[in-house]
């Protein structure tokens, strides 16, 4: 599903956030991306979401070479993946329904279909019945779940989450992780970046962990794709 091959990312200010990173994530896997602050976790996700392009190396997602994807194809590509942020990026002046419906509206889905899918997504995150509320009328955990509902409403096969539990307390964080796991169970590939090692360790079964340190994959120089990955299966 995802293949990074010797990926280097240097930002315009000269900072090299990734110094040759290689790894693979298979379809249907759930993978944690951990490491200290500044290690390059968000940069990996930005490359997957095509918010940034690699400076060197190749990023393949679902068979597409993202470094070479023409700009006009970016919107369609982004519609095929779901993204969740720590600060959830909700539109605060729109009700929950509109927020969740946004990817469908952008894709031009018919109104009836939109209505059905939004309800289904809100049901999955346990927020059915709160469609008319504004994000500010919800708790932090609920807001994050709205963000997740928006990411999954168009049924992407890949879900990437950057610190999805960063603003949440322990119980809520565990709850969100369980929710993400449920999406993996129905076949979605899930990549979660988090610096919260404890949360990763608590979360028992069925995921791998990729540890980044200062732009490299820990335990290897990033030369070989798979051995550098710490398996926790």
């Amino acid at each position: 599903m995802i293949a990074f091959d010797h990926v280097v990312k240097r930002y315009p200010n000269g900072r090299e956030a990734l110094a040759g990173v290689s790894f693979r994530i298979a379809a249907g896997e759930m993978v944690f991306l951990t490491g200290r602050s500044g290690a390059g976790k968000s940069t990996v996700l930005k490359l997957i979401a095509l918010i940034e392009r690699p400076t060197r190396g190749t990023v393949l997602v679902a068979g597409k070479n993202l470094g070479a994807l023409p700009s006009r194809r970016i919107p369609a590509y982004r519609r095929s993946i779901g993204v969740v942020f720590q600060d959830h990026r909700l539109l605060m002046d729109r009700p929950v329904f509109d927020n969740v419906a946004l990817p469908l509206i952008v894709a031009g889905s018919p109104l009836k279909e939109t209505d059905k899918r939004v309800r289904a997504a809100l049901d999955q995150v346990g927020l059915l019945g709160k469609e008319r509320m504004l994000p500010l009328e919800l708790s932090a955990g609920e807001q994050q779940r709205v963000g997740i509902a928006r990411a999954v409403v168009s049924k992407p096969t890949l879900l990437i989450c950057d610190e999805p539990t960063g603003n949440l307390d322990r119980d809520l964080a565990v709850e969100v992780m369980r929710l993400l796991k449920r999406f993996q169970n129905v076949g979605v590939t899930v990549v979660v970046a988090t610096h919260d090692i404890h949360l990763v360790q608590e979360h028992e079964s069925g995921q791998r962990t990729i540890v980044l340190d200062d732009g490299r994959i820990q335990g290897g120089a990033g030369e070989e794709p798979l051995p550098s990955i710490v398996a926790s299966r």
Binding site: P75, R78, R89, P103, V106
Partner: peptide, 12 residues
């Protein structure tokens, strides 16, 4: 902010 979000979810 809104435009960023719309582009993020695939708005052309």
């Amino acid at each position: 902010a809104e435009i960023e979000v719309v582009k993020l979810v695939g708005g052309s």
